[in-house]
Amino acid sequence: MSDDVTSGWFDARIVTGAHPASLLPPTDRDAIAAHLDRYALSGALVSAMASWLHHPIGGNAEASAIAHSLADRGVLACWTAVPATSGELDSLTALVDRAVDDGVAAFRIHPASHGFSPALLDELYDALQTNRLPLCVDAAELSWPDLTTIATRFPELPIVVSNLGYRKLRELWAALVGHTNVFIDLVDFAAHQGVEWLAANDLADRLLFATGLGVRDPGESIVRLAWSGLDDATVRLVGSENARRLLHGVRA
């Protein structure tokens, strides 16, 4: 085993902004830069807490501000979408076009938190698939049948499921073997030997390193991967290569 493979990982989920009900490390621009330094990370994908918990579309500017400020550190923005609704959002296609122009690397949706059916976002899924931008979603935000529906109807759309916890392997197995466009990230992927179980079933190429800084303690994912039972090549695959394959703009 080589210590070198624990540097250069790409953090596929950071959430910038204050969390109203947790005692977590800060996530402003300087804190994210310090996080990249402390764990020798090559970059990160950043979305906005404001987009989740306050103003879904308006919060995207906060994610982009962080990405632009830390562009030289490999930081990319992840925007949030809601259904096109008069007075809130005119067009999902136009939103994705603006995101592409801004260098955004992925989109996130919160159907449960934002009170809509995921079936209202077909225009988004189509635009993301066309532009090869992944869709990110927390496990608690989307039912497994809804995930299956999206993954089936948009087979070229990469879908990254986050915050799986430790109780979801039975459902996860069906989703992963049934859909090659379903991925997961390491944020609170807490099942005992879950990472090793994926690798043993030739599914390590579906797992992205991510800490969830802002919503989780980053030490969880850092130690989970570094002290895993994976060989060095697979650690590198999960740590950065899968993200490089999936996200535009992830540096070598």
């Binding site: 609170d188 099942a191 990472v195 303690d217 130690v223 989970r224």
Partner: peptide
């Protein structure tokens, strides 16, 4: 709590605290 939850989750919080 392992193997209820992977040991490295709790351990990471302490190691990096």
């Amino acid at each position: 709590d392992f193997p209820f939850i992977d040991q490295r989750m709790s351990l990471g919080r302490v190691v990096c605290a």
